[in-house]
């Protein structure tokens, strides 16, 4: 088919226009996605670590060798292959019991600092509240590991010299949740200490549990995660003050992250832009004003 030049240009312009037009804009706004959350009931947890095993199983994480060290935790801390961990805290919580368990993992903050500092968008905050991670996009900069108020993301350093590394953290089994399933650790819990659902419903449930525990033998019972850092996606029914478990009572969004992302970087780009514009203007002014016959 022979096409006139004018017609070709018209068609090209029209197709370019279609490409530039974001189809998402034309669709009606999707129904509001409800924020999801995990609820951990400290009073029910028996510290069996089935959740640790399940996590490794679903996410295909290698086992980590831990020598017997005469302590309960195994592994001792989170690592690139251990995204959740049961910790033990010594605390006289009742007359019969002087220890507490704690399930550690990504909090899926409402205001995640890791997402703000990630230069690759490997970490994203989803409308359903999950802070997801795409390993392929991660370049190993490790900023997330340095800005998380809970020190959760773990950096697997492959080569310190070249900087090759990969970050990792609990994703609430993002692949399962995307299919309408629950995180794998939840269904492994034999004690029913873990629950999953819409955050509002989990909060409701947590409040009821705290009230019941307070009325019973745990007067210090409290709910952790309702308001901290934009509200956490991991809610805790605790039997003792958060500090006992190593949780910061009032975790702070890193101020340097705000300063860096919201002030320094935009200001820097403005400085570069202004410098270029200034130099271009100076060049044209100098070209008009400088008489080359006077130049040595």
């Amino acid at each position: 088919m022979i096409m006139e030049r004018r017609r070709f240009l018209k068609l090209s312009a029209a197709s370019m226009g279609c490409l530039l037009f974001d189809p998402a804009l034309s669709l009606a706004a999707p129904a509001e996605t409800k924020r999801l959350a995990m609820l951990y009931d400290n009073a029910k947890c028996v510290g069996c670590r089935a959740c640790q095993m399940a996590c490794k199983q679903w996410n295909k994480l290698s086992p980590v060798s831990t020598d017997p060290q005469g302590i309960y935790e195994s592994p001792r801390r989170l690592d690139p292959n251990s995204w959740t961990q049961i910790r033990l805290a010594r605390y006289p919580v009742s007359a019969e019991r002087d220890y507490l368990f704690m399930k550690v993992g990504c909090m899926h903050c409402g205001e995640p600092a890791c997402v703000a500092v990630c230069p690759t968008s490997a970490l994203k905050k989803q409308p359903n509240g999950l802070v997801t991670f795409e390993r392929d996009l991660c370049n190993g900069c490790g900023y997330c590991t340095q800005f998380c108020p809970f020190h959760i993301p773990q950096l697997e350093v492959i080569n310190r010299l070249t900087g090759e590394a990969k970050s990792s953290k609990c994703t609430f089994c993002q692949d399962r949740v995307a299919e309408g399933l629950r995180p794998y650790c939840i269904q492994s819990c034999p004690a029913g200490a873990l629950d999953w659902g819409e955050r509002d419903a989990m909060l409701e449930k947590a409040r009821e549990r705290v009230a019941a525990l307070k009325a019973g033998e745990f007067p210090q019972a409290n709910l952790y995660g309702e308001t901290q850092l934009g509200g956490l996606g991991r809610l805790y029914v605790l039997l003792a003050p958060p500090e006992v478990y190593g949780l910061p009572a009032d975790p702070k969004y890193p101020a340097i992250s705000t300063l860096w992302q919201k002030i320094v970087q935009p200001v820097g780009q403005a400085v570069f832009g202004a410098t270029i514009l200034g130099l271009v203007a100076a060049f044209f002014a100098a070209r008009r004003n400088v008489h080359m016959e006077e130049v040595e």
């Binding site: 690759t120 996009l137 370049n139 190993g140 900069c141 070249t162 900087g163 090759e164």
Partner: peptide
Amino acid sequence: QGAAGVTIR
């Protein structure tokens, strides 16, 4: 992102 970012670094 990804391998490009590793090279850049």
